[in-house]
């Protein structure tokens, strides 16, 4: 008998269903969606590569590139916490499903500071 009340109530209340594919979902600002790199401040320090629990992040110092395998990343945000330059961040939008495993490769324009050449000792 009690259930009749609940069922009747849901007849007259607004629908609980989010009309998802028709209306895009708005995420909360803190949602851990996918990892975004701010290329201009990255120094290719490799800390994110070492810290990543699944080995999704690869840092290529010679090729000056930072790459992430989207289908390996578990969105834990450990790289975001450990980045010393705070150039990694979590974007609330999720990676969309695909038929292939996606790898995003970003070119990093970082120039390592050149070591000062040793001052030549003046000939005695």
């Amino acid at each position: 008998m009690k259930m009749t009340y609940v069922a009747l109530k849901s007849l007259f209340s607004s629908p609980a269903t989010a009309n998802y594919p028709a209306e895009p979902k708005t995420y909360y600002p803190g949602t851990r969606g996918h990892i975004v790199l701010e290329v201009s401040t990255c120094t290719l320090c490799k800390i994110c590569e070492i810290r990543c629990p699944t080995g999704a992040i690869q840092v290529d110092r010679e090729g000056k590139a930072w790459s992430i395998e989207r289908m390996k990343c578990i969105q834990c945000g450990f790289c975001v916490d450990s980045c010393p330059r705070k150039c990694l961040s979590n974007d609330p939008q999720y990676t969309s499903p695909a038929s292939e495993k996606i790898t995003d490769r970003l070119d990093v324009p970082y120039e390592p500071p050149k070591r000062k050449p040793k001052p030549e000792t003046p000939p005695a």
Binding site: A7, A16, G30, T31, R32, Q75
Partner: peptide, 26 residues
Amino acid sequence: GFENLFMNSWRIRENILDIVEETTGG
């Protein structure tokens, strides 16, 4: 076999998950 009760319990659970997502991010 009480399908309506199943749906209603999970409807309320979604509200709890909204709080969780807002505060923790997952």
